[in-house]
């Protein structure tokens, strides 16, 4: 077993009735990478990610996460991953502190761990004054940053981010990516889906999905030279034009 590869998939497929959402994708993600997962709406990114997180059962194919099989060892996988969903996933009617404490609690962390880590986290996010405010009262940018911090609160090996910067202003997006880099430096592997092409440039490697298949997978530099494009946007447009599927959302 190659321990350097944290995600390995082999012909992973998801079918809904006669619709193939994800069509036999095979790829791997190295430990410590920031792996970008790109695609138009309906290309199958979210479905693929949901299978890797254990939220959805694959129809066919194989995959391992951190060396654990996604069919049989989901409980072990769950302990090692973090997840931030497209929808804002903190409780708006609980305070910042209560949210942190709750998520620490469900990952079985000790009270001391939670207390110390929460203090550190609030300091880093400069949210000390807001610690006892309801999350619903925070501005969106702060909420997203807080949600990311909570997703990696239990120090997972790997974190899945599903379009984490949707609807956030450019400045906050920049700050958000700085947080992603910091997490990456601490050794957390990042798996991120996005449709902002400038964000694709920040990734170590990028997979572009079209119609449920991976059409291209490499570092942004190599992809740009292969498709003789100056930006990732051009690369993406060249590939996405091939798409047969209409937007499915």
């Amino acid at each position: 077993m190659d321990t350097e590869k944290i995600i390995i998939t082999e012909k992973l497929t998801k079918r809904f009735a006669d619709f193939v959402a994800v069509d036999a994708i095979s790829f791997f993600v190295n430990k410590g990478e920031i792996f970008g997962f790109l695609g138009a709406n309906g290309a199958g990114k979210t479905t693929a990610m949901r299978m890797l997180c254990g939220l959805s059962k694959p129809t066919a194919g194989k995959a391992t996460i951190a060396g654990f099989d996604i069919y049989r060892q989901t409980e072990k996988i769950k302990k090692n991953i973090g997840y931030m969903s497209q929808k804002f996933s903190l409780y708006e009617d609980l305070t910042v502190k209560e949210n942190i404490r709750f998520y620490g609690g469900i990952y079985g962390k000790s009270n001391i761990f939670i207390k110390e880590k929460a203090a550190l986290l609030l300091h880093q996010l400069k949210l000390e004054k807001e610690a006892d405010k309801l999350v619903g009262d925070l501005p969106l940018g702060w909420k997203q940053k807080l949600a990311f911090s909570v997703a990696i609160f239990h120090e997972p090996q790997l974190v899945f981010l599903d379009e984490p910067t949707g609807g956030v202003d450019p400045v906050t997006r920049r700050e958000f990516w700085n947080m992603i880099y910091e997490a990456s430096e601490r050794g957390i592997t990042i798996f991120v889906t996005t449709h902002y092409m400038d964000e694709a440039e920040y990734c170590s490697r990028v997979a572009i999905m079209v119609d449920g298949r991976i059409e291209a997978l490499d570092t942004p530099e190599v992809l740009k030279s292969t498709y003789t494009a100056t930006t990732m946007d051009d690369v993406f447009l060249q590939l996405a034009r091939k798409a047969q599927r209409s937007e499915l959302g």
Binding site: L55, K78, S89, I106
Partner: peptide, 13 residues
């Protein structure tokens, strides 16, 4: 509705 259920289902609970 709020999407928190997904996060709970990804967690080891």
């Amino acid at each position: 509705e709020t999407g928190t259920m997904e996060v709970l289902l990804v967690s080891p609970v």
